[in-house]
Design a protein around this nucleic acid. Structure first.
Length: 439
RNA sequence: GGAGGGGUGGCAGAGUGGUCUAAUGCGGCGGUCUUGAAAACCGCUGUGGGCUGACGCUCACCGGGGGUUCGAAUCCCUCCCCCUCCGCCA
C-alpha cells in the first residue's frame, strides 16, 4: 500500500501519478485523507485523556496503599467519566483507520517516473528483440497439432478429468515439462545466484493481501474448503503464483541490512480461475487454469531496486536464449501495469504456430508497496532506522507457453521436435521422435 | 479426530490486579583497565502511532481481537499458532 505520509504531504503528486494508470483511483484520495484526519484528531484527544487517566490511576493506587479509601473512591468516580469518553474516541479512531485502510488496500502502486504513459497494451514500448522469427520449408504445425501427433498432451482427457483449461501431459510431454522445470531451477540457482525454496501451494489470505492480489482480485483465485466445514472456506487459497508465498517469507520481519539482497527461486504450479477471461475454453495451452512456473523473488535495498530489476529481466531472458527462442522485451505502460508494480517488463516469446508473441515472463519492481502491506523491513546499519525494502518478482519463466514456443519453434520436417542442447541432459534425448505410425 | 501443556524483549526465563518505567541471565553495542586480547567492572540495548520548528512530550504494544476494572502481562470470552501423547494416515 501507499505511504500515508506521502499521501498527506504530497497529495497532488500522488493524484497525478495515480491518474496515469487511467483507472480512476485518484478520486479516492480525498476520502482517504478525510478518514485519516478523523483518525488522527480522535487519537490525539483520546491520548490526552489516557495520559490523565494513567496518572489518576496511579494516585488511586497510592491512596489505597495509605488506606485513604474515601479519597480513593472519589477519585475513581472522577476517572470513570474519562473512561467512557476514551472508549468513544478509541472507537472513532479505530473505525476511521479501518475504513481508511480498506480504501488504501484498493489503491494501486504509483508508476515509476521512467514508465511510459499509456492507456493499454497498444502503448507498451518495445525495449529490445532477440533472434528472429523461425521460418520453415515445410508446413509447420501449431502446438495443438504437434502435441496431439506426438502425444505430448491429451487435451480431451485433461478436460475429462477437470474441465476445460486443465492439461494432461503424457509421455514425452510430461517428461519435457519436468525437464524444463529442472533446467530453469538449475540455471537460476547455479548461474544467477538465487536460493531455491519450495513453498506451500495453498496460502493464507494474508499472503494474498501482502502481495496485492487481494482484496481487488479475490474473484480470480480458487478458494479452498477443508472437508465439509463450510466455515473454513475463504481462509486458504490455491496460489496464483509462487510470488504469493515466497514474497511473504519474511513478512513482519526486520532483516539486517547485510542480509540483503535476498534472492529466491521457486517452482510451483499456478492456479487461476481466469473468470471472464478471453481465450479460455478454446483448445490449447495458451490460457489454462493450472500451469507450472519457476518464479524469481528478490528483497533488495531501495537504492538497488532498479538495477536488480534489470538483472532479473536478463535472468529470464537467458532462459529463452539458451532454448534458442525468439523473443522481445516490452515495458508495460502506466495503463497496462499490474496493481502492485511500479515498473514492469514483460518478455514475450515468439510462437510460430500461433503467429504471435506470448507472454512468458513478467518482471516487476513493486518498490515498497508490498513490503508495506506485509510490514517487511530492514534495519539500516548507519543509523538503526527501519526501512521498507524493494520487493521484486519475475517469472523465470512460465512453462505452458514456453512449452508451446519450444515445440513450435523446434519442430522438424519429419514431425519430430529437436531439443535445444542445454535441455538435452535433462530430457535424456536430442529429439522427441516423430510418431512411428500415423496418428 | 481425542486428551493434555504452552505462547512474555534478539535468545533463555521470572512475573497471577497498583513504584511493571517487565526481574535475572545470556547475547549485542559503547566505555574503563591493557602493548593487544581475554577476564572484570560501568553504561546502553524493542516496535509502531500522535503532537512539536526543534530539544522533547505522550499513547499503545507481553500471540491476535473483544470484555471486566479507576487501573490488566496478570481476571473473563473468543480466535490463531506451537509442543507432547493417543487414534488415523502418504
Amino acid at each position: 500500500m501507499l505511504d500515508m505520509k506521502l499521501l498527506r504531504d504530497r497529495t497532488e503528486f500522488v493524484r497525478e501519478r495515480l491518474a496515469t494508470r487511467n483507472a480512476g483511483d485518484e478520486a479516492k484520495v480525498t476520502e482517504i485523507l478525510a478518514l485519516d484526519e478523523s483518525r488522527r484528531s480522535a487519537l490525539a484527544e483520546a491520548e490526552q485523556l489516557k495520559a490523565r487517566r494513567n496518572s489518576a490511576s496511579k494516585e488511586i493506587g497510592g491512596l489505597i496503599g495509605q488506606k485513604r479509601l474515601e479519597e480513593a473512591e472519589a477519585k475513581k468516580a472522577e476517572v470513570r467519566a474519562l473512561g467512557d469518553r476514551i472508549t468513544e474516541l478509541d472507537k472513532t479512531a479505530a473505525q476511521s483507520e479501518a475504513a481508511r485502510d480498506a480504501l488504501l488496500l484498493m489503491i494501486p502502486n504509483l508508476p515509476h517516473a521512467s514508465v511510459a504513459l499509456g492507456k493499454d497494451a497498444e502503448d507498451n514500448p518495445e525495449i529490445r528483440v532477440h533472434g528472429q522469427k523461425a521460418s520453415f520449408d515445410f508446413k509447420a504445425l501449431n502446438h495443438v497439432e504437434l502435441c496431439e501427433k506426438l502425444k505430448l498432451i491429451d487435451f480431451a482427457r485433461g478436460a475429462k478429468l477437470s474441465g476445460s483449461g486443465f492439461l494432461l501431459y503424457t509421455g514425452w510431454g510430461a517428461r519435457l515439462e519436468r525437464a524444463l522445470i529442472n533446467f530453469l531451477l538449475d540455471l537460476h540457482l547455479s548461474e544467477h545466484g538465487y536460493t531455491e525454496v519450495a513453498p506451500p501451494y495453498i496460502v493464507g489470505e494474508h499472503c494474498m493481501i501482502g502481495v496485492g492480489q487481494f482484496p481487488k482480485f479475490r474473484d480470480q483465485a480458487y478458494a479452498v474448503q477443508e472437508g465439509l466445514d463450510a466455515s473454513t472456506l475463504g481462509k486458504l487459497y490455491l496460489l496464483p503464483t509462487a510470488e504469493a508465498p515466497v514474497a511473504n517469507i519474511h513478512r513482519e520481519e526486520i532483516l539486517a541490512e547485510k542480509q540483503l539482497p535476498v534472492r529466491y527461486c521457486a517452482y510451483s504450479p499456478c492456479f487461476r480461475a481466469e473468470a471472464g477471461a478471453a481465450g479460455l475454453g478454446t483448445r490449447g495451452m495458451i490460457r489454462v487454469h493450472q500451469f507450472d512456473k519457476v518464479e524469481l523473488i528478490k528483497v533488495v535495498h531501495p537504492d538497488h531496486g532498479y538495477e536488480e530489476l534489470e538483472k532479473m529481466v536478463q535472468n529470464a531472458e537467458t532462459v529463452l536464449q539458451r532454448l534458442g527462442l525468439h523473443y522481445r522485451v516490452i515495458n508495460l505502460c502506466t495503463g497496462d501495469m499490474g496493481f502492485a508494480s511500479a515498473k514492469t517488463y514483460d518478455i514475450e516469446v515468439w510462437a510460430p504456430g500461433q503467429g504471435t508473441f506470448l507472454e512468458v515472463s513478467s518482471c516487476s519492481n513493486c518498490e515498497d508497496y508490498q513490503s508495506r502491506r506485509m510490514n517487511l523491513r530492514f534495519k539500516r546499519e548507519s543509523d538503526g532506522q527501519n526501512l521498507f525494502p524493494h520487493l521484486l518478482n519475475g517469472s523465470g519463466t512460465a512453462l505452458a507457453r514456453l512449452f508451446v514456443a519450444l515445440v513450435e519453434t523446434h519442430q522438424q520436417a519429419d514431425g519430430s521436435v529437436r531439443i535445444p542442447e542445454p535441455l538435452r541432459p535433462y530430457l535424456g534425448t536430442d529429439v522427441i521422435p516423430a510418431p512411428t505410425q500415423p496418428a
